[in-house]
Design a binder for these strands. Structure first.
Lengths: 339, 339
DNA sequence: TTGTATGCGTTATCAA
DNA sequence: TTGATAACGCATACAA
């Protein structure tokens, strides 16, 4: 409602001084500082984003996005969301710079962060969960760069907000779906990406949570890793089905789903297993059309990319950090009919 | 990229003239008009929303939202979405005026449209599908009011865009879910709101589409109406279950779900039917916790309200109508674990 | 018909 | 330490 101009009139100081106070630029006498602050408080001053945006065009903000996404089709939609936000914010003097990395190499990620952080107002990325990366985040934050984590979070650091899904809930949903599909009776095998990856572990925890509380007739027989790889997934599944031919239900926690499904087809031909997976990539669609996977839990990748950029923008424009430390997108059940 | 100022410099005419041409205000000589247009074309002029917004603050745009929502809890989330967009756009000189009506009275809706249309730049509402309302939309459009339909569409009129779900797809998903839950064998009863309401009919069409193509062992035994009312729903269900005690699967197309579920409990105590419903209202949650309803198809009510307002805003600010005539939100499967 | 000046809210620059 | 002023892109009232 109130503008800087009004505050300057009410307090009898110039607009410049009000600006200096409100944006903490210093060089203001303590009395005036107090005066302006109290008046701004009274009138409930909130900076106007349109005005800020217009002024910002002269020296525009840069929001950098760094994704370890190359070769991982899941991120295609995340990137679409980033681009959509970019188009929407283009008029407001914001530049969005996107950079991708292949694989999860800590040194490469930190090098990229260093480079991008140099000229960015905000930095959005999917962190590798190591102390080195956390330290880098703190360093950037200390230099005034707003850091956001996307899709994956990291603990004990000064990131402003995590944008992503609730992996534990995702696992619970997967179990709930399998419960509905099997009538509550199932011999379950789990294929995860890696037991060391936090998100995968949380999905399994969620799955087991529902299983123990709600489905006493679920028997959990085996868990193996795919390393997010189709070949390893094939081999793991072969072994699992050989050791436990009574498995009729598979919980696919991560990638490598094509290899797993091929193994199912090869070693249990004609048998109809109940399979639930995560995310929606081209292979998922193919496997669902083939009737191998029956449901997949999605985590709104588009919204993740879009919201992360918008959150950063709003924070830059309003001057205040996000109110919530987490922006959790809803998990989304997909079956063939709503792929 | 290019601004009005730059175009004026390139073309050697004043900013005022460029403005007159680009916004079709007339009083410009044909030659200058052609000149300015060709240059604007060349440089790919797109008006800057921040600048427009700032200028608009002097005489701000009004976006009116009219919802036949009173007494219908489904719309609570739609309204939340409207408010969220309002907060977001507040800085850009836009006022959002919300008004609600009780029930679906054509005269009342038209009267409200007339009143709100008088001082609105854009009008968003869920139309009753009658020629009178269509005529009113055309009248408003002729007077320069941008009209958007929300949640429900209406044919043969000059509304700019429909924001809502795909009801046919919703029905297909419901059948897909029941297919998964029943193993493809079911005796189905359908309880719709009214066979005369287009959205309800489309959901049933979608359901039958999947049923005939994919589930040959589904037997469709009976369809009755609830009139969106719990008492009528109870009575209809009682009759349906008496006439067809073999029913083990219920497709709940619309409201009145509480009455239906109570009837199921009363007349088939202990029997576990497969029930799928639409939308997420407090009753739905209660019935799902009680294990009566197993899945519900939601249509992103929040996004509907939010996107409709934003679409109107973007259109007002960019001067161009939405590119798409429909903004279809995804249908969303919910089970107990992701309510 | 055309051009100019002013203001929207904010920021940056320059002068005092 | 302060204040005045110009600029961002657009719209409009007014002057020519």
């Amino acid at each position: 409602m109130a503008t800087i101009k009004q505050i300057s009139e009410l307090s009898g100081v110039s607009r410049g001084t009000v600006d200096r106070v409100l944006n903490g630029r210093g060089h203001v006498s303590p009395e005036k500082e107090r005066l302006v602050r109290s008046i701004a408080e009274q009138v409930g001053y909130k900076p106007n984003r349109a005005g800020k945006a217009l002024a910002a065009r002269k020296k525009s903000y840069i929001i950098s996005v760094l994704l370890a996404s190359e070769g991982n089709p899941f991120f295609a939609e995340v990137i679409s969301g980033v681009h959509a936000a970019e188009r929407e914010l283009h008029d407001y003097g914001v530049k969005v710079v996107l950079r991708t990395l292949k694989g999860y190499d800590v040194d490469a990620q930190i090098a990229a962060l260093t480079e991008m952080g140099a000229d960015s107002s905000a930095l959005i990325f999917n962190p590798i969960n190591t102390p080195e990366v956390a330290g880098k985040i703190n360093e950037l934050a200390a230099r005034g760069v707003q850091v956001y984590t996307l899709n994956t979070d990291i603990e004990n650091c000064r990131r402003l907000c995590y944008v992503g899904s609730d992996y534990f809930e995702g696992g619970r949903i997967a179990c709930g779906m399998l419960g509905l599909m099997t009538g509550g009776v199932a011999n379950v095998g789990i294929l995860t990406g890696s037991v060391h990856i936090l998100g995968h572990k949380q999905r399994i925890d969620g799955f087991l949570d529902v299983m123990y509380k709600k489905y006493p007739k679920f028997r959990f027989l085996s868990i193996m890793e795919t390393q997010d790889d189709d070949m390893i997934g094939f081999e793991s599944t072969r072994k699992m089905l050989t050791d436990h031919p009574e498995i009729d239900t598979i919980f696919l926690v991560a990638a490598g789903i094509y290899g797993v499904c091929r193994a199912v087809q090869s070693f249990l031909p004609g048998r109809r297993l109940h399979i639930v997976s995560f995310d929606h990539i081209p292979q998922t669609e193919e496997l669902m059309r083939a009737g191998l996977i029956h449901a997949t839990i999605c985590q709104q990748p588009f919204a993740q990319g879009y919201e992360a950029v918008k959150l950063a923008f709003n924070s830059l424009m309003s001057g205040a950090p996000p109110k919530k430390q987490q922006f959790i997108v809803k998990n989304d059940i997909r079956i063939l009919e709503n792929l």
